[in-house]
Design a binder for these strands. Structure first.
Lengths: 170, 170
DNA sequence: CCCTATTATCTCATTAGTAAGATGTTCACC
DNA sequence: GGTGAACATCTTACTAATGAGATAATAGGG
């Protein structure tokens, strides 16, 4: 049988040099752990679904942003998808090779380029998005609507503040 | 941050092929977006701090798990850190080369190995952990203690359920 | 005991994504 | 209208991490 003596459960008991953390810090650390694990658990669902289409979640993010927001400058796309500038170029290249996305010149700024879905890209998203949304809905169904809204509200505050205070410069 | 012509807010107006989402699905999608962005915003803080020590967050995760839980089997470590099996070997190798971690044989199972902090590793963690915890506390300080606990509780439910239902097999 | 299924770790090829700097463009100001 | 700072994107070199399969050991049924 499973002689897995110590799973994630065993910890409090025999910790050798446990740092003495005050309540606010302990609460924050616990929240971060739960946040990470929850994110990971949900990402499994999302990525499994997206992977079925032979797409990475970064690629799907690009397609989703364009499907949802229409053609947009690569810079705006980058900000939405949370990827490096080189990464954006790379992802858009790959999606272009697959015929799902295309670049278009910007009339008013010759440095800039738009990324836009091709008809194939739009057709793909129209076909797969509803199913993906359903996977997400199901993955999050552990909480009722009211609780989901509550978490959304609290997390938004948390995220906005974290962004606002910038990296720990000092 | 600049006036992103189209943030997550702008959609009703000019979306070309907006999928008609019912309220539960819309709520879930919104929650996922906020969850991702919040996680990313907080990760910036954590990684910036960890990066100062020349560590990646995966490496830090290993050290933290060992510091907090004592020597443990590589498999248990892997489950804690949420990394592939190859990744665990790779990370422990790298930390071993730096003299922060060591492998030890398991008396009762010759397939298995323990990973444990070396004295240097323990010293490093004792030195940097409090500062790191403080960075986290600060990054999450956008919410008061009560709200942090509330979010933790709700996210725990969310994550547990998401894990329990397994990938979208059906 | 031996055989098979299972488990624990490690190896190796591949890859998605990053960081830093290059290229070409626009804008503000003199 | 010329000059330099600020931009938007792209290129290149690199790295952390994955995943599939290899190696090795254990456990239990016959």
């Amino acid at each position: 049988m499973k002689t897995n003596t110590s799973t994630t459960m065993a910890r409090e008991a025999d910790s050798p040099a446990l740092p003495p953390t005050d309540p606010p810090t302990a609460t924050a650390l616990k929240l971060l752990v739960v946040l990470s694990r929850t994110m990971a658990a949900i990402a499994v669902h999302a990525e499994t679904d997206i992977g079925r289409q032979g797409l990475t979640s970064a690629e799907f993010g690009i397609l989703e942003a364009l499907h949802h927001g229409g053609p947009m400058l690569l810079g705006d796309l980058q900000r939405r998808v949370l990827v490096s500038s080189g990464g954006t170029t790379f992802l858009v290249d790959r999606l272009t090779k697959r015929g799902l996305v295309e670049r278009r010149p910007c009339q008013t700024d010759r440095r800039a380029r738009y990324a836009a879905l091709t008809p194939d890209g739009r057709a793909l998203m129209t076909r797969i998005f509803p199913g993906h949304a359903e996977v997400i809905r199901r993955a999050l169904s552990g909480l009722g609507l009211a609780d989901q809204r509550k978490v959304t509200q609290l997390l938004r505050t948390l995220g906005t503040e974290a962004e606002a205070m910038g990296p720990p410069v000092g």
